[in-house]
Structure formats: structure tokens, C-alpha cells
Design a protein around this nucleic acid. Sequence first.
DNA 1: GCCTGGCCTTACAACGTTGCATGACTGAGC
DNA 2: GCTCAGTCATGCAACGTTGTAAGGCCAGGC
Lengths: 340, 340
Amino acid sequence: MTATLRDVARLAGVSFKTVSNVVNDHPYVSDTTRAKVQAAIDELGYRPNRQARSLRSGRTGAIGLAVPELSLAYFAQLADEVITAAEQRDVVVVIEQTGGDRRRELDVLSGSRRQLTDGLLFSPLGLSNDDGGLLAVDFPLVLLGERIFDGPVDHVTMENVDAARAATDHLLDLGRRRVAVIGAHEGEVIGSAGLRLRGYRAALDARGIAYDEALVVDAGPWHRINGAEAMRSLLERGVEFDAVFALNDELALGALRVMQEQGIRVPADVAIIGFDDVDEGKYSLPSLSTVDPGRREIARLAVDVLLDRIEKGPEEPRRELRSAYRIVERESTGALQPQG
Amino acid sequence: MTATLRDVARLAGVSFKTVSNVVNDHPYVSDTTRAKVQAAIDELGYRPNRQARSLRSGRTGAIGLAVPELSLAYFAQLADEVITAAEQRDVVVVIEQTGGDRRRELDVLSGSRRQLTDGLLFSPLGLSNDDGGLLAVDFPLVLLGERIFDGPVDHVTMENVDAARAATDHLLDLGRRRVAVIGAHEGEVIGSAGLRLRGYRAALDARGIAYDEALVVDAGPWHRINGAEAMRSLLERGVEFDAVFALNDELALGALRVMQEQGIRVPADVAIIGFDDVDEGKYSLPSLSTVDPGRREIARLAVDVLLDRIEKGPEEPRRELRSAYRIVERESTGALQPQG
DNA sequence: GCCTGGCCTTACAACGTTGCATGACTGAGC
DNA sequence: GCTCAGTCATGCAACGTTGTAAGGCCAGGC
């Protein structure tokens, strides 16, 4: 059996409470007692029991991370960063997958699993604006990703509009004028699709280029296959375009593949830029220009905000933070830097 | 505050232990009492406190999953499957990243985090054979991936040797005779590199084809960049080859990119097959033939074995399970099935 | 009328920890 | 010599749950 405070106390010849005091660095423990107790701790290999601590303190030392699915590179890499950031703060991460499904997302907010963690980082996908009220939960919650809700909740996200505008500008700076968009979500306004589309329009407006609906292709989930589909539909409809802004990298890579199958030269005929800076984009042929949304910063900020919220309680004013973005120029928009 | 057994008991007019009995479906609770208590439970929205349960029962309801890093697609997809399998068994997953670093892997085995979970699924990378003894830990442990150790530990893995042999056979069946290998690990014998190389040699031997060291390229970690490096070194050295067996998909995709840069036609000039069946392989151009190692089955088996071990204790004989593999033919070895 | 035994309910003691209150000792100040 | 403040150590009571043992009640058998 593993040793308890009492075992250590017996060996050291003190009360078990004194051992607790040593372990927790209480003031008013004499050096000799401390040494004696420490020796007993070492001898028995005593480790405080986390469940008992949890029960007393109400803290578990774990946070939850709810994402659609780890199979999507963006979320896998986000999870990587979150776990790393959490580790530095001495907290572990319990990952839950929602599949982007509304029902399962609601479940994450109310399920009994919440008791296992001190708070939740939540990247919703299926919830709609009307669900905002459901986010008024009684545990520490930080939203990740898009600012879908106006709820009373901390929020860490990226500069979707500005970054999308910069991505579009990048294409326009190359002299392209017919910029197709892949991955729109009809009618959606303040999810990432809506925000990025807004940035796209802002860039066009600023240069007096007319918005052409024919260039904007809807897609379902932002998976590679849907990027491929979208590109096919664009080509089938015979729409003319000399550049593509894919609303994320997966879509871009799917579209890229179809263009290559069709013998379209990238970037000579069509330049393409994605969004997210997932690793694979570095190794595609051509390598994929993209927007680095500051994933590491998002993860770090999110963990910080959540732990802050856990510590300070619900009274503190809610925070909304955005990470800095960066345009990453690679071959797909004409940069000539052969990559690994 | 959230309700406790006592609160429910007070409302229902019974002792708190009776409430506990209702919650745990004990026999000998009369229907009327049960109904009364249940009504009180519903009214107060009572939920058993998991930490208190943990303290009493010694179970946390969580398992650990230690992998090198989630940014590697294989592990992200494995984690996805593990979380899904665990969810079906009503258990949550705490993910830890080791970076494949020996020191951090040892830390995972001894660290205080172990108290947060009932057992660990561990996919080691940095540990050497000499470390086998370190796996004799006092908590439920299931090794994932390669059979690096002969320790007294449950183990779930894939058929590395047979699968690698089948992959090689697939290339040989196409009439190729100069099959390069990318991703060997000099001197390693029973890690995945060693096992897969053994399968490769077995395939050659069976057909009386001589093993040519010049065709076998070492690589460091199995990342895309190292696959690219390896292909470059092969080309620089002027080694002749008409097929490539990359020991995993990431290496294959890196190598593929370099071949394309160099104008080598795939599969016309060189056929290439990978290993792992990560999603990206479906969308590369050409799409990548590969070995599906049965990731989902591995995840499901691993969770089953671990939960079994947790339940039955250390006395049960240890188990070693292998998932079934499958060759996935795509364009990179000549199949003509354009993919999304 | 009392004992027996089945059914239902309850009291008590843990699990290992920490907060609070108390107590004992020491030395300084008057 | 006595008080008082500061230092150190301790005991008790919780946190919310479950296991064990015991208690109460009722019907049936002698």
C-alpha cells in the first residue's frame, strides 16, 4: 500500500497534521521537525493523495478541452499546444470530442464529466447563436475559436476578419482580380466562415472590386473532401478565377489536388491561399500559402484565462482576447522557397 | 451549492445512506422509498460527487494516454479512436505528450499524474530495450504500438513484420525489383523500424532478391521532413530504384514531394507505398498506397485490455494482441482510382 | 407469546486530506 | 513573577461517499 500522512507521522514521531504542514510549506515548522519529517517522507516515498486533496479542496488539477475531432489537423495541433501550455502550469488535460454535433456539444456543457475537471476550454461548432444562453454555466468556461456567442463567457479567438482581409489582400497584391472563395456557409454570419468572408469582402471593397456571388462556393464541414468538391463545382460551372481563398487549409489542400488533376498550374494559372497553417501545408506541392492564426498563442492565452477564472471566480469581468495573425507566403502564391 | 446525499435525504425524509442505496441500486429498497428518494433526487438535481467516490473507491474513471505528440497525424487519429472507445465504456482520457523523449517517458511512468488515472495506455518511443524493467510498475499499464519490451505488461500492437512484408510484396508484384526503404533506424531491432525492415527482407528473401544496403536509408524521427531528406540523399548518391517502401506515411509524403520536384513520375518511374493509412494519404497527388494497420481496432482492444486489467488486477496473465492489417492500394502504386 | 428469518432502513466508521482552534513552550518586557 | 506575543505542534472536524454491522419491523411457525 502507498503511504499516508499517518504512516509518515508514525515514522517521524509527530502528529499527522504536522506532516501535512511540512508538505504544504506552512510557516511555523521548526527546521529540525521539517528535516525529520522530510526524511520519513523520503524513506516511505510518500506522495499526497490527489483524490483526497480534491475532495477537501474542490480542485481536481485537470481542465477539459472539447473540440470537434482530433482527426482534424487544426484541432490536433491545437490540443498539442494546449496540453503543452497546461503542463507548464501543472495541470492535465482531459480531451472530449463532440464531432461538431450540437447535441454532443450541449452534453459536454452539462454532462457529469464536468466534475472531473476544474474548468473547460470549449471550441464549439454545432451550437447556433440562439444557444448563447446555454453557455451561462456554473463552472469556469472559456470559448475557443470563433466568437459565435455574446454570452457572459471568456473568449479567446483569432482575428478572423482582419486575417482574412490580409489573405485576400495578399492575392490582390499579386495582381489577381477574380478571387474565388471556398468554404462559405450560407447565411452564417458570426462563425468563422462568416467572419472570414467578411474580411474577404472588405478587401475587395477597399479596392473597388465588385463582389461576385458566383465566385463564392459553399462547403459543408471544412474537410479536405469538401474542398475538392467545391473546386470541382467551380470548374464545372465554368466560373473564371485566377486565385482562390480557401477558408481553411484542409479545404485548400483538397482544392489544390483537384486543380492539379485538371492540369491547372499553381500558382501560374491560379494562386491559392489557405487559413490555419497546419503542418501539411508546408509539404504539399506546391507548398501552401496560408494564414498563421497564432495557434500557440491562442492555446497559451486560453489556458491562462481559464486558470485565472478558476482561481478568481465568476465575479471578475469576462475577457476577450485575440491572437496576432501572420500571412505565411509559400509557393502556392508564387513565393519561390522550395520547402522540405 | 450542489446537493449532497444529506440534502436529498433531508428532503425525502430518510437517512442519507438510504439515498446512497437508491443511487447504487442496492437490493432491499422498497418501491415506495425508492420513488420518494428518486423524486427528491430529481427535485434537487442531485449528482454524486466524483471526487468523494474516487476517494472511497480508489477509482477515478479516467485513463491516461501517453503518446509522442498529437501533431503527428498517426497519434492524433489514434487518440481520436481511443477517446471514442473510452467514451463508450464511460471513461475519460487524459492525454500526455512525451515528445518521444526518454526522460519524459520515464516521467510519465513515475510522475504524480498517475494518481489522476486508473491506468495508462503508453506508446513509447524513446525507451530502449534495457528499460524493460522500468515497465514493472504498480499500476495498470498497456503498451501500444511496437513490442519493444519483453516486460510483464499487456501489449496491443500491429503485425509489423507481416504487414511490411505484404507492403513489399505489393511492390514486387508490380514487377519492381529495386525497392528502396526510407526510415530505417540503424541497429534497432525490435522497434517498428526494425520489425518493418525485417518484413521487407523476408519479402525479398522469399523471391531470391538480394538485399542491397545502398537502398536502405536511415532517417531520424518519422516526420515528413526526414522523408524528404532521405529521398534527396538517395537521389544524390545516384542509387537506382524503381520503388520505395517508406516505413510510415509521413516519410512517404515527404519523399513524394521531393520526387515530384525532381520530375520523377509516380508511379510510372517509381512506385511508393507508406505505412499507417493517415488521412492525408488519400488526398495527396498521387494518392498514397499504404498499409492500414487497423488503428481503430488497436484503440478498441487497448481500451478493453486496460479496463480489464484495472478490474481484474495484476494477477491475470498478461495479454498480447495484434490488430489485422490491410494493404490499401491507391495511385502511388499504380491503382487508377482518382480520389477526392 | 416468543422466536426465527426475511426484508428494509439506519448508524457508524472509514477513505486521506486540509482548515480552524487550541495548547504548550519560549523569551521579552514590566 | 507574571503577562503577553510569538513560535511551534497538535486534535478535531469536516469534504461526500460507500461498506459493514446492526437495528427495526412484520409475518409465520411452534
